[in-house]
Design a protein around this nucleic acid. Structure first.
Lengths: 207, 207
DNA sequence: TTACAAACCAAGCGCTTGCTTGGTATTGTC
DNA sequence: GACAATACCAAGCAAGCGCTTGGTTTGTAA
């Protein structure tokens, strides 16, 4: 399962909007605007202008502005959970699974879904409490993927630190790359992955 | 130089507002509100109410709402730069300096200045470009403290990864603790410091 | 062609926002 | 105790906000 086929299967099941459709295009533009200006500073007029319609017409597709933010977050988590699951499944050992997860998350944060991932991190408080609760549920599934792998590494004696603490430190370190990492600057995502793995003392033996 | 005397000397030089004064109290309340609700969602009426004055009276102390955000950030960086400097000066070896920096930053993030530190991380985009440039200058001084220590460790062969990358990963990992770490939950800041140092493969030999 | 729904526009309503204004207490200084 | 300077209040303005409304265009299928 490559990235494209994963996306297609989610679209087919109505879990993620078709990126080429009207709704998908709006969500992509919304993610970009929310990241660049912040949710509160982005007006419904900005959003409408970005896809070339009148501000009022937005409310034909979404009932409120917040529903747009929620949709951006929900669809991003759904997509990335599927991507992470695929990354885990394709790696043989726990060690490889972790490296695959790190690589995949760096890709999510700094690749095509990067804008939406940044929104997920920085605009959390702009969600209503009900929406937060729903997104949190989805996020728990996503996090469990990581914890399973880290706990396996712990059992195998490869990891000495607490899996929960490690995951949280990794979340911070990896999310933060969105503020400074730029591809094409000599440092590839593979390099970054290696550095992270190395920082954790998990370099593969043959290195 | 303990924390209190560092603060007092900054106050004496007008680099930081006296926390017990009117301005200092407002800035502390502002930091709290900005962190809890976000800068944009916090109104000048909220800020005024938090210190018991009318909204219009705020503009006797600050020309604009943004100036309040800027002041929160500037004073926080000034204070923390001084705290970090003291941490570095008090440690003998490079290894100890790094550990002291990590410990001090965790303290800043999760201690008394935690609210303001969170604002620094999450409300960056709400600053005007001019203010951003000014705060960036201050931040560079702060970051140089870290880089000096990390580069020394690199020269000593203790650190193999790129100091810039390491610092950025640390920034993310440590900042992120503000979203999950709560003191009194069995995990102390010293424990956390140890885990971070351990994750970097920098545990002291006698361990 | 007709029928109907989905997509969109033009206009604007009601409310909140940051900030201003003109005036009144309070405080510190000689 | 006179007198600025500082700190504050009460009221409200202009602008921008999310969202609504009534009506028009566009796409689709028989």
């Amino acid at each position: 399962m490559n990235q494209d086929s994963i996306l297609r299967s989610l679209v087919a099941n109505n879990l993620v909007s078709d990126p080429s459709g009207a709704r998908g295009r709006l969500l992509r533009e919304a993610a970009r605007l929310f990241r660049d200006k912040g949710y509160e500073r982005t007006t419904v007029r900005d959003l409408a202008a970005a896809v070339g319609i009148q501000s009022g017409s937005l409310f034909h597709h979404f009932r409120t502005k917040e529903e747009i933010l929620k949709a951006v977050m929900v669809e991003t988590i759904r997509l990335n959970t599927a991507l992470m699951q695929a990354a885990v499944d394709s790696a043989p050992s726990s060690r490889d699974k972790l490296q695959a997860l790190i690589r995949a998350e760096l890709e999510s944060i700094n690749g095509q879904t990067g804008e939406a991932m940044a929104v997920l991190v920085f605009e959390w408080r702009s969600l209503s409490e009900e929406s937060q609760a729903y997104v949190l549920e989805l996020r728990d599934i996503y996090e469990q993927l990581w914890l399973d792998v880290l706990q396996a590494l712990r059992r195998e004696g490869v990891l000495v630190a607490d899996p929960f603490v490690v995951r949280r430190m990794l979340t911070g370190a990896l999310s933060w790359t969105v503020t400074w990492y730029r591809s094409g600057g000599g440092l590839t995502l593979d390099d970054l992955t290696q550095q992270v793995v190395a920082m954790m003392g998990l370099t593969t033996p043959e290195r």
